[in-house]
Design a protein around this nucleic acid. Sequence first.
DNA 1: TATGAATGAGCATTCATTCAT
DNA 2: AATGAATGAATGCTCATTCAT
Lengths: 209, 209, 209, 209
Amino acid sequence: MPIKEPSRARDDVGSNSIDSVTMGKSLRADARRNRERILDVATKVFATEGLDVPIDEIANRAGLGVGTVYRHFPTKEELFEAVVFRFKQRLIDKAMEMLEHDDPGPAFFNFLSLIVREGMGNKALIAALASGMDIHRPLSGISLDFRNALGELLNRAQLAGSVRNDIQVTDITAILCGVVRTLEYNDDYGLSERILSVVCDGLRGRCNL
Amino acid sequence: MPIKEPSRARDDVGSNSIDSVTMGKSLRADARRNRERILDVATKVFATEGLDVPIDEIANRAGLGVGTVYRHFPTKEELFEAVVFRFKQRLIDKAMEMLEHDDPGPAFFNFLSLIVREGMGNKALIAALASGMDIHRPLSGISLDFRNALGELLNRAQLAGSVRNDIQVTDITAILCGVVRTLEYNDDYGLSERILSVVCDGLRGRCNL
Amino acid sequence: MPIKEPSRARDDVGSNSIDSVTMGKSLRADARRNRERILDVATKVFATEGLDVPIDEIANRAGLGVGTVYRHFPTKEELFEAVVFRFKQRLIDKAMEMLEHDDPGPAFFNFLSLIVREGMGNKALIAALASGMDIHRPLSGISLDFRNALGELLNRAQLAGSVRNDIQVTDITAILCGVVRTLEYNDDYGLSERILSVVCDGLRGRCNL
Amino acid sequence: MPIKEPSRARDDVGSNSIDSVTMGKSLRADARRNRERILDVATKVFATEGLDVPIDEIANRAGLGVGTVYRHFPTKEELFEAVVFRFKQRLIDKAMEMLEHDDPGPAFFNFLSLIVREGMGNKALIAALASGMDIHRPLSGISLDFRNALGELLNRAQLAGSVRNDIQVTDITAILCGVVRTLEYNDDYGLSERILSVVCDGLRGRCNL
DNA sequence: TATGAATGAGCATTCATTCAT
DNA sequence: AATGAATGAATGCTCATTCAT
């Protein structure tokens, strides 16, 4: 499944071959390092402070100028999306692992649990999941991938009879989003446990009335 | 600089109908009407656009000057709280009705359903419920009332055996908040139905593990 | 010396004689009482908080509506001028007393001392004196009277040889204004004493190079 | 939100003249020029119109955007303080000169005269001096320096017998502040001369009682 | 390519003054 | 005459984004 980087131009090849030999490589490495640094900082900052932090703040904490941030991410939104990209990529990896190693039911439910654990108090992940919910704009590449991975887990769990059959992937993303947002202002551990248990029970299927 | 409370209440009308005709509290009536208008507009605008709408916008849409809005609600936050107040008041009323007329189980679950229906796509209600979740500041009057009403419904449902006993009110408000936020950008009816059913099932109690 | 009230219209006489008989007198009394109350409050508030207090605040503290304040004083500035009027009137009275009862020298210097004492920490009086200094707008009636009273004291003190002959009234008002403003943020008693003594010494006349 | 200091100093030029031609610190130079321009404008505007001029006005007159002004001076107050800084710095320099070159007495009195001349009609300087008088907040760096310079002048003048011994520095700043404020609306030259002479005479010491 | 200076629209809030009742 | 509601211009300040160096 090819994952396309979100719109990051890189149209400088060809003529600057000399540069590439003399110092181009190192520049590119520098740039890549900066990009990573920005993402790291943005990830942490968005996670802890939410989306309202000014870009200047992020640039500062990354030890870079604003201009540099904007060179890599032409828009605050795009920066955020890149952060989202990372989150989802990591989660997708986890999903893949679980798909390979675990039994269908546990794989699915453990994945949910994982997300909840990671999302607790992480405003960026919360916003990331929420942004994937917006029905009004089409799912970007990574979100699609994420949904597909989740769908895979769900499917197998349903085939194994561990999850109600009427449930759709969207329902799961929605529920995840909800649970995780629920915990935005509330890191009481018992709470998340109980909510997760309610949701999982509900997903397993009704048994009374 | 101390902010003076914006001349609330004094809504005892009735017998002074003659006064109202001759020269009575009609200015007061005007003011009250404006206040209502502001609240109406704010409710709608906050609901559809979120909390970021400028006060000027609200004033404009209400056909009033900014100053008038600020006279009634000295702070944007207070305006929002007034909107929240209304929402919660209405929900509390509904809860009371259900407490009186319905059986414990249905009363509880119907109330959840009601909230979900009302909250769907309503950013203001969502924010309202979310604001009640912030563990860091104590519940204000109406939010307390709301929680109490919900607690009452939950209690009776638990006594009647319709809801798991380990569930607490906070869990419910959290779940509601989550579900409703989930549907912020998504008004697909089937979705909300399924999520609700999952949650309700989960709340009823586990039957398989 | 006729002192004219600062532009306070009072053009309702004649035809409303009936009103004056039935209830007019009491209304006028009411109005006059309100006017006094506003002035009292404004005097105190301007003195302690400075000229930046909103008119609403004054109206509130006076237990009246803003409209009432504006009825009596069509402009914030006019209100302030009325306050100034009072201050200066009182000072003029004192000056008159001193003119009658005290010797020329002491009369003059005691008067200065009095003003300094009254002006210390009284932002309104300070502003009042300062407003009288503005060369760009002509002296209003009371300020003229005040200056004249001061001039009288000065004259006699000069004739008695207690004050340098080259000093003019304006110099005195200016100096007073300065001394009093000096003490605006500084209520240390010794300070005002010393400053006063320097100024008075200086006024008495030079004795060394 | 932490406010970062506006990139002061670094005024070591000289040898890098080549850099300046090719591509040197010209941006920095631009910024510095803007900073100066803002300060110049603010100085003039504050001086002539007082502290109430909107920042937008200053930005306009400087031909810059508001944001630029705020970049250099994060707060209106800080802008004003920077203006004050300049004034006081210049005065301190003058004081130093006089300390070196003039005899104690004349040095002191000429300094007073200088301040009065500069402060006449200069609302900014007046406010600057006044701000140094506020007993409620401790003196900032430059104001302390200013007071010290003045103290030095005073001391020497007192040792030389040119000034009354009971006078303290605070008295002098207070008097200066007062005299200068006195002249806020009044640029009549004779007036300031006479006031100054009165004050100076007073400071020299009493000779008659 | 990196930098950070400049920009300016945007926003919450205040307050003198007017006006309907 | 009194009231206080309405008005809206004005202001300090923020922050996403552009641009010159």
